[in-house]
Design a protein around this nucleic acid. Structure first.
Lengths: 238, 238
DNA sequence: AATAAAAGATGATTTTTGTCAGGTTTCATC
DNA sequence: GATGAAACCTGACAAAAATCATCTTTTATT
């Protein structure tokens, strides 16, 4: 599959407002813009690989990308799912380490690549931007701490419920009293998010479905009763 | 218990070399030094509480502190253990959020407090320092990603072995062919690190002991056979 | 030193979850 | 629209780990 390039101007990007680049002065933004390369990726293509060295920053313009680690037996654990406006691969770039995870396209994506020189240049010249990045990184760390504690002490049922709610928050399209998670996730991917076996996810999902908490809509999941789902997540055993 | 203050000069601090303050110019360092308050804490005392707002940065001079989250049933999960030279509470400070975890003294500690104004002042005036902090934060994030994947897909036995090795790396005092983990951890605390029940830790530890992988020395654990322990950790089931 | 409290240990039991094996359905491709 | 592959589903079973109960040892406190 050949790389399909495209172009887009940062200042006109639909997702600038959701991105950390938002608020950058015209000079800084054009420095980013003039040095970036934009590529279209198909579902299943890889953006970067665990164990390789980062050479720049990826910024999502369209689609969804999963960032995951493989364990010895080849089981995946999905660390996060990137959506338009998100940065990709900044952790390894900023810690000056190799990538510790692999990024694979879940839904056809358009992603811009900013060479590290240009990113670091803007970062160093612009303390406000630097501060914003630090704040975002530390916030992200907080959600990871949350996940750690959850993984340590919650049951699979609770974690699945909690993750469905989290996905709803991030990818939910609100309907009348319900919300569609706009993300074509396989059961296997969902299992890799929750940290469990695919079969277990399947069983629990159909339980949630028969209890009227969720519904299936093609490849997507609709959250029908967020309150009951929250009860399942919170270990408020009643 | 009354607060016991003490004083120490940053530039003369034994742990400056291990700290992120290392490399700071004399002017910046004295700004930190002149505004800090140093307090001695006894085992069991709390440094900060989940849900409260950070007002500055803690910097460890002596002792050990655990940073943990409590779940609904009161089960602890220990996110990390801070040692001399480490910063404490910087995540919530930099993300401008409430503390998401509680910090409690494990071994009598001396901890300096730097008001956030002064810390931010130095951070903003000194891009090199800022860069060093970002790098450290992102590195820390990497270890958390590692932990997440481990928690998701490894067995308790593997996680316990992996954590013992990690503790050895950080707190190990090297002896002849063995290494003492210089940390007075209760079985309960160890369980909170691994993310399991206390009884399970007790059982596995005594297995490791009878297999000659570790030995007990008072409240501390000596790693006798790191290689075999690594085999237990890696899921190289052979 | 006596006592209480906390930490550590062990056994029995139950629950949860992973694994394996066998199905069906869905989807993409020729 | 046939074919193969991938995804999805279900049941049976085994393994891992949590829970509960009880007991011993260690540590702290009066």
């Amino acid at each position: 599959m050949a790389k399909v390039e495209f172009n887009i101007t940062c200042s006109l990007c639909d997702h600038l407002k959701d991105s950390l680049f938002n608020g950058l002065g015209p000079e800084d933004l054009s420095r980013i813009n003039n040095n970036k390369t934009c590529v279209q990726y198909k579902k299943g293509q890889n953006i970067f690989y665990e164990g390789t060295r980062p050479t720049g920053l990826y910024c999502m313009n369209a689609g969804k990308v999963k960032v995951f680690k493989n364990n010895v037996q080849g089981k995946e654990f999905i660390i996060y799912i990137a959506k338009p406006g998100d940065f990709l691969g900044y952790r390894a770039l900023l810690s000056e380490e190799f990538y510790q995870a692999t990024a694979t396209v879940l839904e056809d994506a358009k992603i811009c690549f900013i060479p590290k020189e240009n990113f670091f240049e803007v970062l160093q010249k612009n303390p406000t931007f630097m501060k914003r990045v630090v704040k975002a990184v530390c916030h992200e760390m907080g959600t990871m701490e949350e996940k750690l504690a959850e993984l340590a002490h919650k049951s699979v049922r609770e974690r699945l419920a909690a993750n469905l709610l989290m996905l709803k928050e991030t990818y939910g399209m609100e309907g009348e009293g319900s919300s569609l998670i706009d993300l074509a996730l396989s059961r296997e991917d969902l299992a890799s998010i929750v940290g469990t076996a695919t079969e277990t996810v399947i069983r629990l999902l159909s339980e949630f479905k028969s209890d009227g908490l969720i519904a299936f809509e093609g490849k997507k999941i609709r959250v029908i009763d967020a309150k009951k789902l929250a009860k399942q997540a919170d270990l408020i055993v009643a």
